[in-house]
Design a protein around this nucleic acid. Structure first.
Lengths: 156, 156
DNA sequence: GAATCTTATCTCGATATCGAGATATCTTAT
DNA sequence: ATAAGATATCTCGATATCGAGATAAGATTC
């Protein structure tokens, strides 16, 4: 089905996209949960590893967490000694979050495995396929972000 | 970046996949939340609409919810009068869940809009692109489901 | 410099989800 | 028929997340 000449309908494509995403998340979680780390906390650490110290709200934008969720995420990581909050003299509203030495080693090792895992899962894709998927997914993501959903026709 | 000749790395492809998924979920939620319906509840109703009455565990497999989550999902929908649980004589462990008349009308209307929304967001994709993405996403999903994450090298 | 607006973070209460375990029922082997 | 195991659902407690509102500090306007 949906093989040779059949057109892939939007709902079918969305379904397979959602399934692929779900399987990927499961897969990634299986690797990460071993260290007692959730995906969100992992993403926070990863951002800090690759971008250096950042404010809580900037991290939140990168990992797509609301401010309330960020507060507890950083709380969790701080309690485990993986990050620390540092106050800033020039702007005292801000708390700059940075990895501790322990946190750096921790996330470096996990991320290295994570990257290998991703490469392994995507090994079956040719460069052309990757390119097409990359562009297509970007198109979808952008369209979804900009689009306004169909309104219910209200009689009022 | 990642344009003409550059190879799309696995992490980049995963990132854009995750972003596209997130934007799509937001988009779909914007449309569905208006009716005070969450994505999971929407999916439950949708499955019932297209497959007819099903047991709780079968629905759970289709919408990827754990049994505990299914119990409360069906509770929510039943409380709103959109579905009902029917006991089964041939197997009294089972509860067959079916749409009420009201539930049927409700989900039919919402799903029609949902389908239009999906088509709109994906309108920019050619048939070839859809096909490649469909196959590629299936590959990724399958690989992720089968794969065993890299193990941490334990010294024990 | 006081009033007002904006921004960054935190607190609180509500919710969806899950894992583990309880219960009831069905199935199978003896 | 009975025991043992499998299956379907539910209950309970824990968790991550969010929205709304509180607080504090910086920025702007008069």
């Amino acid at each position: 089905m949906a093989d040779e000449q059949n057109i892939v309908s939007a709902p079918r494509l969305w379904l397979v996209l959602a399934r692929a995403y779900g399987s990927m998340v499961d897969f990634i979680e299986r690797s990460i949960n071993a260290q007692g780390l959730g995906i969100s906390d992992f993403m926070v650490l990863e951002v800090l590893l690759h971008k250096g110290p950042l404010t809580i709200s900037v991290i939140g934008e990168k990992v797509l967490l609301a401010s309330a969720s960020m507060t507890s995420a950083i709380d969790r990581l701080e309690k485990r000694g993986l990050v620390l909050r540092r106050s800033c003299n020039s702007d005292r509203r801000i708390r700059l979050v940075e990895l501790t030495t322990e946190g750096t080693g921790f996330i470096e090792e996990i991320y290295a495995r994570h990257e290998k895992d991703l490469q392994f899962v995507m090994a079956g894709l040719t460069d052309d396929e990757r390119k097409t998927m990359y562009e297509g997914l970007k198109k979808i993501g952008l369209a979804a972000k900009v689009a306004v959903p169909t309104e219910k026709c209200k009689t009022a």
